[in-house]
Amino acid sequence: MTGGLVDCVDVDEAPASARRGDEADLVARVAAGDQGAALRQLYRAYEGRLYGLGLRLLGDPSLAEELVQETFVRVWRKAGQFDPDKGSVATFVFTIARRIAVDLWRRPSSRPFQPEPAEEAAPGDPMERVLVGLTVRHALDSLSPAHREVLELSYRKDLKQSQIAERLGVPLGTVKTRTFHALRAMKAALEEGGVGG
């Protein structure tokens, strides 16, 4: 078993560029046979996004769950084929997930109502759109609770900063500086996730 909490703290506080390298390093460790800590840390980084992807593409919780499981069985099997010079770990994982989503969609017993996912990535295809939304959510979730909160209150655009200050019970000046630092952190997290701010 891995020390989950410690892993999470490390991931959260590492600068974006270091985290990207860390993920490639995790895949290398998995390829070398580390089926414990490294695979689990990698899994925890992608579980939410893969499940969300399954729900959106296949429209069914049990198919979404299968997508998560099958993707990670294959990530583990194919870890040795990952080449950090050819793309990010996120691209590696989601390319595998895309093929599995197509297989699950085509399975006669699944009959999802959703349109068939495309096998190859193309700009503007539904999966790319879904992935952007999931990556933004993942980046938001990686922020500190205070940063996430002030951004969630801001991006809906129905409150002005003075109302946000009132809602949070902090001075307006604090909301302004907190929003600034939160948006900078968000930009870094988005770049880490491969959707440059």
């Binding site: 899994y43 499940y51 769950e65 939304g133 938001l140 979730d141 701010g197």
Partner: peptide, 20 residues
């Protein structure tokens, strides 16, 4: 760019218990 992307955030999804 980060400001525009924020508005595209997917809703938070609860992963089923025990999936890991």
């Amino acid at each position: 760019g980060a400001g525009e992307l924020l508005a595209r955030a997917a809703p938070a999804v609860d992963v089923p218990a025990g999936l890991e």
